[in-house]
Simulated scan of single mutants.
Amino acid sequence: MGWRPVGSTGYWSVAGYAEAVRVLRDHEAFTSERGTLLTLLGRDDPAGGQQMAVTDPPNHTRLRGPLQQALSIRTVAGQRDVIRRVVTEALRPLADGGPFDFAAAMAALPMAVIGHLMALPEQDWPRLVRLTHACVAADDPEYQIDDGPQATLVTAHRELFAYFQDVVTRRRRAPGGDLISLLLTMELDGRRLSPGEIVSNCYSLLLGATVTTAQPPSAAVAALAGTPVLDDWAAHPELLSSGVEESLRWSSPTQHFMRHATRDVELRDVVILAGDAVVVWLGSANRDESVFADPDTFDIRRSPNKHIAFGVGAHYCVGHTVARVTLRILFAELLGRYTGFTLAGPSRRLRSNIISGFTHLPITAHVR
């Protein structure tokens, strides 16, 4: 547990697994509606109570239900061929034998998947990838504009919201079977969602999909290239799912979630006062040695693996099925088509306290 001076804009840090699970599960004692990221520390999130990510039950449950059904395994199964085509195309340059920026390719992959699900024009995808990453890594020179981090964040938010306002307006005139059309028909408390609520949830869905799914593959390859583990994994396709889950635990792409105490709460013999900010560090909880044996080893056979990379409780990631299917297809194609993975130059980490990952990871490999 961290220490917060009284009267400051500090926060309590929760690093252990059991305490992390308690905070994330107990939405009555720890609310999401004042903001879930440290970028909002000291001020309330204007999307609180409107955007699913910053809405507590029961409204969160009503918002989540239709989206959860739309992103179910049955629905996503129908997208497998699309996802496989996207994956094989993303990996194709690896066959040339020269250095291949694996992290850059992975950054574009989830955008293609969610782009299909949201029916967003393909020509917009590169811009959307850049804007979503600017939202979570405004300090990173790769995404920062000349006026600095705060201006980068404000500009990226403004452009994304303006983009979705235009998309929603067009989609109203010609709805389809996509996620945005679903948001247009959803109801909350007996009313349709307002335009602002629809745009806010479009932003949240896109952000959640694009900036997290890219990181487990890059983290796995960075850790395992040049070792026998990737060939061992390729030789045992029955370990596909357990290896994917380990990549999620290992990378823990979303590094933190913030909550605010709604009442005085005792946690690990520390009294957290009502109104205090509490930050759960998922990467730390997923390396808690009391839960995960030898936590600093990437173990493709790890079982059980009760990681919380997707969160836990009411706010468990609504897109977890899409992410898992995408990652299973990605690793199956990667390991089935290529071998001899080698790091081909210095990697570059993403500069962010929200997302743990890479912007660049040059590698080489051989076609099987």
Rank of each mutant, 00 (worst) to 15 (best):
V167H: 02
V229E: 15
P217R: 05
R191W: 04
T210C: 13
E142N: 01
L193V: 12
R192T: 11
D147I: 00
T185Y: 04
G177T: 11
R171V: 11
T210L: 10
T212Y: 03
T169R: 14
E197G: 06
R158K: 14
E197Y: 03
V211Q: 07
R192E: 10
P149E: 05
F161S: 12
V221M: 12
T169H: 07
S194H: 07
E142M: 00
T227P: 06
G176R: 09
L224E: 05
T155L: 02
A214F: 03
H157P: 00
R173I: 00
A156T: 05
L188W: 12
M186T: 15
E142I: 00
G196F: 05
P149A: 09
A209T: 05
L160G: 08
G226S: 12
I198F: 08
R191Y: 01
L183W: 12
T169S: 07
L179K: 06
R191N: 13
T169N: 03
Q215R: 04
R192M: 06
V221E: 08
A174Y: 01
D139N: 14
A214D: 13
I198A: 11
L193Q: 09
Y203E: 13
S218N: 06
L183F: 13
L224V: 07
A162G: 15
P141R: 01
A220I: 11
D140K: 02
I145F: 00
A219P: 07
Q215G: 04
F161M: 15
R172K: 13
E197T: 07
A222R: 15
A219L: 10
F164P: 01
L224G: 02
G190A: 10
V154T: 15
Q165M: 09
G208S: 08
Q215N: 15
L224W: 02
G148E: 10
L230A: 09
L160N: 03
R172F: 08
A225H: 06
I180H: 07
V229D: 05
R170D: 13
E187G: 05
